[in-house]
């Protein structure tokens, strides 16, 4: 599988105190561990992104633990208060230990 590719929507600018909606997507099969290989009949082992974290200037704002029931190419949207200018960092952690990340800048003025 090609390296998972994230896509994130965060406003570039905001007023102080504004509550921002953040939308995230990432390519991933989210192999549930419930499917069988059609040819061999063997169970396909689980391989999912099990953790999503959004931090702002190094401090965790929001996170989610995902189980195999989360759909392929997982979507997560949530909110964050604009307090100061800085960097959002989004990280997705795979069952195999890989971490995929993306950053977005916010200017508060």
């Amino acid at each position: 599988m090609a390296k998972p590719k994230p896509r994130v929507k965060v406003p570039k600018t905001a007023a102080k105190g504004e509550v921002l909606e953040i939308k995230t997507l990432i390519t991933h099969k989210m192999e549930s561990g419930q499917r069988k290989d059609k040819k061999t009949g063997e169970k396909i082992p689980q391989k999912i992104i099990n953790k999503f974290v959004c931090a702002f200037n190094g401090k965790e704002v929001f996170s989610a633990d995902w189980h195999p029931a989360i759909s392929a190419n997982p979507f997560m949207s949530f909110y964050a208060v604009a307090t100061e200018s800085g960097t959002f960092e989004f990280t997705w952690t795979d069952d195999d230990g890989s971490v995929y990340s993306k950053t977005a800048q916010l200017t508060v003025g």
Partner: peptide, 27 residues
């Protein structure tokens, strides 16, 4: 009635400003 009951745990902080989130799941 899924093979495993857990779907997700969503963790908020006061910095979220709003305890609201969306995702998509398999049923």
């Amino acid at each position: 009635k899924n093979p495993q009951p857990g779907v997700a745990s969503i963790n908020f902080t006061p910095a979220c400003g709003k305890a609201k989130a969306s995702t998509r799941m398999r049923l």
